[in-house]
Design a protein around this nucleic acid. Sequence first.
RNA 1: GCUCAGAUGGUGGAACUGGUAGACACGCAGGACUUAAAAUCCUGUUCCCGUAAACGGAGUGCGGGUUCGAUUCCCGCUCUGAGUACCA
Length: 940
Amino acid sequence: MDYQFKDIEQKWQKFWADNQTFKADDKTIKPKYYVLDMFPYPSGAGLHVGHPLGYIASDIFARYKRLKGFNVLHPMGYDSFGLPAEQYAIQTGQHPAITTEANIATYRRQLDQIGFSFDWSREVRTSSPDYYKWTQWIFMQLFNSWYNKDADKAESIDKLVKHFEQNGSAGINAVCDDEIQSFTADQWKAMSNQEQQAELLKYRLTYLRESTVNWCPALGTVLANDEVKDGFSERGGYPVEQKKMMQWSMRITAYADRLLKGLDTIDWPEPLKEMQRNWIGKSVGALVKFKVPNLRPTNVEDIYDTEPTPKVIEVFTTRADTIFGATFLVLAPEHELVAGLTTAEQKADITNYIAQAKKKSELERMSDAKTVSGAFTGSYAINPVDGAKVPIWIADYVLAGYGTGAVMAVPSGDQRDYLFAKHYNLPIIQIIDIQKIETEADPTKEGHYVNSGFINGLTYKEATAAVIAKLEEVGAGKAKVNFRMRDAIFGRQRYWGEPVPVYFKDELPYLIAEKDLPLVLPEVDKYLPTEDGEPPLARAKDWNYNGYEYELSTMPGWAGSSWYWFRYMDAQNDDAFASKEAIEYWKDVDLYIGGSEHATGHLLYSRFWNKFMKDIGLVAVEEPFKKLINQGMIQGRSNFVYRVIDDEGRGTNTFVSFGLRKEYKTSDIHVDVNIVENDILNINKFKAWRPEFADAEFILENGKYVCGVEVEKMSKRYYNVVNPDDIATRYGADTLRMYEMFLGPLEQSKPWNTNGIEGVFKFLRKFWRLFHNDAWEFNVSANEPSKAELKTLHTIIRKVEEDVERFSFNTSVSSFMIAVNELTALKSNNKAILNDMVIILSPYAPHICEELWTFLGNEAGTLSYTSFPKFNPAYLVEDEFAYPISINGKTKLNLNIPLSLEGADVEAFVLASADVQKYLDGKTPRKVIVVKGRIVNMVV
RNA sequence: GCUCAGAUGGUGGAACUGGUAGACACGCAGGACUUAAAAUCCUGUUCCCGUAAACGGAGUGCGGGUUCGAUUCCCGCUCUGAGUACCA
């Protein structure tokens, strides 16, 4: 029979499901290998052709590893809490669980049809109470922990309480809030329970505090920094504003240094690591205290007089060595000391400026970056190293959220300070001998210091050390490491997320009892905030904890995805998020494939939770994902038709082919890519596409209508969405799998283009034909394989091994084509050869291979766990090589030379050749380079 | 602006440590089979010169360099894509 992919694929998909072929074993002597895909959010649109790219690659790898004798864990699940289902619920009143369930069913159908070897018995859904019970449980562990800087790890909060009881707050070195109290053991014991709890909250790894958040009014919720792009929400593109709110946060900053260091231990793409490094934003520098003498006139009636004059302004700098060039200080307009620093004369200026800065949105402020603006407070500070009096300004180029919200401005070395100094006529002092500061700041670290007191003549390294030593000596500063990363906001004022397992008593949060988990999402009448602006959960009737009010916000999208790889290890466990044995056996993810868009969100939070869970002894290793590959984005490839515009500028019903469009006035119209093949428009389908095109006329070239092409995002509105279902129906899953790999390197982004898919389909048919005679009857021979057949086989064995190990799946597909072309040319139908070919190809095209595997007399279902053929280099040994002979680096001819000959003999052989002499034209080569088995080059 | 990745035929791409550039596939052209079409098969296909072959010349974004030899290494530049952006 000819290759009937439809029957074959349905048959084997059913077989795998019925027999649980890919169920991973938890008890085995085989080495483990964990292959993970980033699980999808099940959206209403279903999978498009870009989604499976990574899944296919990981599936090939998983199947390959099984053949190599590994016990492979290759699971799939759904990140099923999320905004779209909730937005849909708000519009339609339909419970998001119902929408989500339906979407998951679609995803499952689509995934099944591609023939993935997932172990579905381990499926997880983050929105299922069985799952989020453990997300809540992990939240509780974070709540019950604090970060001990001395031990450099998280520890139980009980241990901290014990310390407070015995020693008070002395000797505690914690990552905590700024405004912690100092107390003795007796003072601690004298505190009320409420006071103690309030104090402990400042240490917990998940904690409640008033913070400035990204508030998105349109979505009615708070967003994390990585969910905001250019002042708009990443999902939906709604404006985002800054707002102060009481919020749950995660003390991820405690792990900043470990998150940074850990990057050196994992095999991830360099750009991804770089993004995380930038996001963490470590900078090594110094805190410097500038004293402010009380210079303010006391006899002026001024509201600012009610503010005490601040004694000290603290700044953060990475260039302590430039302190002698600091000619003014700049504070963020929001800085808390501004009011106290402002003199009566400057009050109007300052109030004006602050009002102006407040009005500016985040976006305006960014686009305004080039404009210099600021205001003088009227006060002065004293430079701690030389006693110089420097003016204190405010300006919005200094951010309240970074460092101390204040900088010492060194205009000679910093371009922003330079522009500011020029604009307001402030002094600019050269501090390094080779510094060039006529037209712009020069941030050089080369040269020797001048105009710099006790560091004159020193180099950068010496000067930095000397300045910090001096600052420490006079108590005016110290070395300090600063991070750009902020603690992560961990709450959303939304319905469709994990409830936070917390209730409130006397305005303080307490965990619910562990036995009461999961805290199930209650029913509500509407999915909107209440009239007085409380989150949707406030609508739940009789929803309380023994009469106490629950936390009303839910967890953010990244909560459930920050630990899900552990759940796959032991997905059905009711007693733990995963058993000790399962965690000990599976440990971590060996290969993780997914998009780079999760660089500073999911991937960072996952590493954070993993480290925390390691600290408190829940998991075995420090990093969750040993090796990570980013698959490229599949972009859309849009097609266009060109409508002719008449003299009055109106669109006609005539369409001109791409090549002739310049001869007319035209407007281009997106046309559905599914009615275009190889850029040729199917005219009948076009007429049927939309009623207004039913009578369309065409100006053709060579009898065809050629469409224009452009690469854009894959999106419904460009009519360029290609659905895997259509491809699978038309060509089958095996062709889809191989074609997605054939498209190019996995990591590279590329437009989806079905132009080459026929070639892959033809290849599978050719492969099928190797096993059949001209009448399509199964026909293989049991003869001894020939030397040529063995050479083809072993070439492909080696090639596939090398390619899979380096994730170069596109080149293997080409190599399979070459192998099949060679075997076809050899008229080979050798059973032994074909049996091995089936195994090698099976990770890529599993259905066709399963079918042929049984044809060859093997037991159904054994293919997935058989052994990958062993490569034998003996079959590739040649006794001759066609040396390229080149003259001055240009190849002139090929010459067959025995490989037994060594350098000098090869040279003699070449020079003896009449063909070579013809090229030499009687001349004697000056030099002959022979690289054995590679090339001969003659210099004439 | 900064950081990173990339640029190879008409198209997707290959060339793994400096050693025959363009594998494999698409497309295109020609041919076979067919009443015809589809399917299938065969041949050709980097560009220039040429009816064709032989021969010759150019050629991996651009300009230089190292080398017997460079898509590969070094220096400078252009363009494209991604990330990030007053981070002191």
